[in-house]
Design a protein around this nucleic acid. Structure first.
Length: 115
RNA sequence: UAAGUUAACCGAAGGGCCGCAGUCAUUACUGUAUAUCCUUUCUAAUAUAUCUUUUAUUUUAAAAAAGGAUUGAUUUAAAAACUAUUUUAAAGGAUAUAACUUAUAUGACUGAGGAAAGUCCGAGCUCCACAGGGCAGGGUGCCGGGUAAUCCCCGGUAGGGGUGACCCUCAGGAAAGUGCCACAGAAACCAGACCGCUUUUCGGCAGCAAAAAGUCAUUCCGGGACCUGCAGUUAACUGCUUUAGGGUCCAGGCAGAUUAAGCUUUUUGGAUCCGAGAGGUAAGGGUGAAAAGGUGAGGUAAGAGCUCACCAGAGUUCAGGUAACUGAGCUGCUGGGCAAACCCCGCCUGGAGCAAGUCCUAAUAGGGGAACGUUAAGGCUGCCCGCCAUGUUCCCGGGUAAGGACGCUAGAGGUAUCAGGCAACUGGUACCCAAGAUAGAUGGCCGCUUGAAAACAGAACUCGGCUUACAGGUUAACUUAUCCU
């Protein structure tokens, strides 16, 4: 999985991309010119200390890895997740539901007819 | 058994399926190198002919020969071309080889903490030209030891707390100097006199004392009302008693006694009293965090270490201890706190930090104008000295800040054991190597199994400490209390 690293990439997504939000997460996405999806995670210190934030980031990565493998996400997007303060201490299953909800809301899954 | 004290340690383990990072191994493909062969181009050299066969280029110059033969035909020199062979270099292709290179493939191994945290001390390492001197500044502070070093650790001393095991301490100097001590209180530092106590001087006579004179019935007398037993010092006991004794109140009388007391007046006095002044005093009162050693006795006008005894403190001598300090004797009578106020004394101390810094590759720039100027500005923490290297500053214009490697994890390392030391710690021997990323790797699921899986918390150059956070648990030694033997 490729991640967004530079600040300018994040800024580009925020400025020109689309967004959807849930109670715990905010999703931004924007088409890129590559054949892969790239993901960025933004978790502020309000959410928790280093261990907490690290754990949320790892869980999100795991969820996305699974979704890419099983559910056929559309390809060619830069996707940024912003974690809200409420998400501190959230269980894995609820986090997963949130991500799926946001992906479907954003229309990032391939349609069945196309498959 | 209960309640504690101290020290050390653990911080889940295991299984299955996916996933991440690093290292190593193996290869595929790719690349590279070498060898051989082929093709093309290029360079150079030789030959272009007498021999077996076939063929017999062009130009120029010179010389010779011949009229024979043949379609054609002499020799020499120079130049050119063609062809052939060999050779040089380059490009392409094919094949083969390889301790070569390489993953996104496959496999194996390894992969956060006791605090990784706070960044509070101390070091290593790197750069600042050298890392220099003085002053300033900063740090530190009982004594001895440990260590690379420390504000750390160990042992001891002193003071304080606890029945005790044990714990706590920011623990140099207040007779070097300066300063501060609010409020309260008379007085807060050369101590002090508010009350009190006391000596003395002056005045006074309301009171006091003495004397004299006068006067009076609230004194005496009985009566009434109400309350109560009373007397013999208490008790025992005895006596008396309701017509008594005592007390309170009321109205009346003036017969006696005026001695005494009272009252009035007068005089005198200063031991007493009142007022004022001048001293003495630090015992007592009260204030305060703190009041000039404490208690008792003597002493004194009253007091006071004024004197004595004991206690506390100070100085000094001796003894013990490396030392902090401890113990004993003697002298003399003794005045606080704050140094986390300035300060003094001893010791230590250059700055910045791995985004330190070094190397490689690629790219770009090193242009113009103005002002000042050989002592000015800059660097070496501040100032002075000393040193270094150099024009400096401003404006305009242009460019870059990209990637990779090292630093980077083998170290004041760990584990075991032996020796020295009370201990911290040191030394020897043997064995082991255990994250190293660069937007940053440890995750998810199986509501798996173990009684529950839950705390605080995520490496970023590396160590030694300290501090703070922390669910639950383990071990050892010791203390106190109760019970049993």
């Amino acid at each position: 999985m490729e991640t967004l690293k530079e600040n300018k990439n994040f800024k580009r997504v925020y400025e020109y991309g689309y967004s959807r939000a849930s109670k715990y997460l905010v999703l931004y996405w924007l088409e890129n010119s590559e054949t892969k999806n790239r993901y960025g995670f933004s978790i502020s210190t309000k959410v928790g200390k280093a261990v907490q934030r690290n754990k949320i980031r790892r869980r999100l990565k795991e969820i996305i890895r699974y979704q890419e493998k099983k559910e056929n996400l559309q390809i060619g997007f830069d996707v940024v997740f912003i974690v809200r303060q409420r998400a501190a201490g959230l269980e894995f299953s609820r986090l997963k539901k949130n991500v799926i909800y946001l992906f479907s809301k954003a229309g990032l899954y391939k349609k069945k007819e196309q498959q």
